[in-house]
């Protein structure tokens, strides 16, 4: 945990506050539609699958697999410079939705599409926790 976290932080709004609040408690929360049963991410007011407004928040398993990834060789701005190379990945959660995140690994070259991953919460400030992922094999 760093007191001087310089990287971009989410500007949390009423529609996304439950997700970020849960992350602080190390829970991965997803909206689920009571009408069609599908989960989605990021959180919306209407289900993007069937457009119902009958939604609930549910705890996700935190398990998924790598759908795609890139190794950033150049940083997204100076605040990420010290992290290069780092992995940005799109995870297909076992509940269905895809989610952009980082994979925390000691070997960026070992990441592969299809690899199983598990959520790993990174408390970057006392107020903000980012749900990142780790390879199950690691």
């Amino acid at each position: 945990m760093s007191e001087t976290y310089e990287k971009p932080q989410p500007v949390i709004d009423p529609g996304t506050k439950p997700f970020w609040d849960a992350a602080r408690e190390h829970r991965l929360l997803l909206p689920r539609c009571r009408s069609c049963g599908e989960h989605h991410f990021y959180p919306r007011e209407l289900c993007p699958h069937c457009y119902s407004d009958d939604l609930e928040w549910v705890d996700a398993s935190g398990d998924g697999e790598v759908y795609s990834y890139t190794i950033a060789r150049k940083p997204a701005g100076p605040t990420f410079a010290a992290d290069v190379p780092y992995v940005i990945a799109m995870i297909k959660l076992d509940e269905g939705p895809r989610m952009l995140t980082n994979i925390i690994t000691s070997d960026v070259e070992s990441v592969r599409i299809g690899a199983r991953v598990k959520v790993s919460f990174d408390d970057v400030t006392p107020e903000l926790t980012l749900p990142k992922f780790k390879l199950e094999s690691e």
Binding site: P10, F41, A76, I88, L100
Partner: peptide, 16 residues
């Protein structure tokens, strides 16, 4: 800025 939909994108350091 990391507002609205972007709050789920640029916190990860994705060069866009």
């Amino acid at each position: 800025p990391s507002i609205l939909t972007m709050q789920f994108e640029n916190v990860w350091g994705i060069p866009q």
